[in-house]
Computed example of a mutant assay.
Amino acid sequence: MYVTPPSPNVTRPVTAPVWWQVSGPGFTALIGLFMLTVIYRFDGLSEIQLALGLSSRSLLLIGLVAYLAGAALSAVAGLLLGARFPTAVAVPATCFLLFGVLLAAFADAGGLLMAGRALSGLGTGAAAGTAVALILKLRERRGAVAGVTAGLAVLALVLGPVIGQLVSEAMGFRVIQLIAVPFLLIALVLNAVLGVVRLSAAKRAAAYPPSGYAGGPWQPGGAA
């Protein structure tokens, strides 16, 4: 009786990310870092603090601690899952940041502002963790991508108070929050497009056998 031999187990190597895949979560993270410091001014005051009647301690808790706490929690998920599922992490991260910015823009009390800042922190941390995870997995241009990303991150943190002060003094703190919305929509589209491209590349790679594998003797074209 003829018994069909079992198909061999073929282990395909995990495809390493390429440098341009960092651009999606990296762009979201840069927006998030900008929004982290945009509510502050170099003279120590804050338009949000004045508009909502917050004390310095309340602003520290609502504006900074809530944001950093959310970022710290979600950064772990980004680091653990971001390299393998960058789109599945980056798209929700961008949505969290978008919703957080909208809440902060229309906040009329400290509680709503805290919720918005916490959501923004969750989005920023997840996106930043994903970007770092992808950079660590790069096989080419890792140093260059890491250097450029770090430089842009510092620039976003520094420019936040400068641009925030200029815009907030002229048009109020709500406008500087809303300015981030179109950029976040672009980031959302960018992450979705990169996900589609990555999925298409993975399907094309799966359509071909690994290099050097000629098939079994029972398969057409297999080695005898």
Score class of each variant (00 low, 15 high):
L98C: 03
L97D: 04
L68K: 02
T94I: 09
T94N: 13
S58T: 14
L59N: 06
A115C: 11
A131P: 01
R57N: 10
V89K: 02
G121T: 00
G63I: 07
A69I: 13
P86S: 07
L68V: 14
G78A: 01
V91D: 02
A126H: 07
A107P: 12
A118S: 05
V91P: 03
V101K: 03
G78F: 04
G78Q: 03
F106M: 15
L59K: 08
V91W: 03
T87S: 11
L54M: 14
L112D: 06
L73P: 05
L112C: 11
A93I: 08
A107T: 04
A75T: 12
L73S: 14
A109C: 13
V89S: 06
G121Q: 02
V65G: 02
S120D: 11
G100R: 05
R142Y: 05
A131H: 01
G53V: 13
G121W: 00
L134D: 00
T124M: 11
L60M: 10
A69N: 01
A93Q: 01
E140K: 11
S58A: 14
L52P: 08
T124R: 02
L73G: 08
L61S: 13
F85W: 15
F85N: 04
L80D: 01
V132Q: 05
L59M: 15
L61N: 09
L122T: 06
L79C: 06
L73T: 12
R141P: 14
L98M: 13
V76S: 06
L103Y: 13
D108I: 06
G53T: 05
A128L: 12
V91E: 02
P92M: 12
A83N: 03
L64Q: 07
S56Q: 11
T94Y: 10
G111N: 12
C95G: 15
G110K: 11
V89T: 12
A128P: 07
R142F: 07
G129C: 01
A66D: 09
G111T: 12
A71H: 05
S58Y: 10
L138R: 03
L97I: 10
R117N: 02
K137L: 04
R117G: 00
C95L: 15
D108H: 12
A72K: 14
L81N: 02
G70F: 05
G63Y: 08
D108W: 11
L98Y: 02
M114N: 05
L102T: 11
D108A: 13
L122H: 07
R117T: 11
L54C: 10
G125Y: 10
G63Q: 13
A69T: 10
I135M: 08
L119I: 07
L138V: 04
F85P: 00
I62Q: 03
A127F: 01
A133S: 05
L68F: 04
Y67F: 15
V132A: 04
A75E: 08
A131I: 00
S58F: 05
L98I: 05
A107F: 06
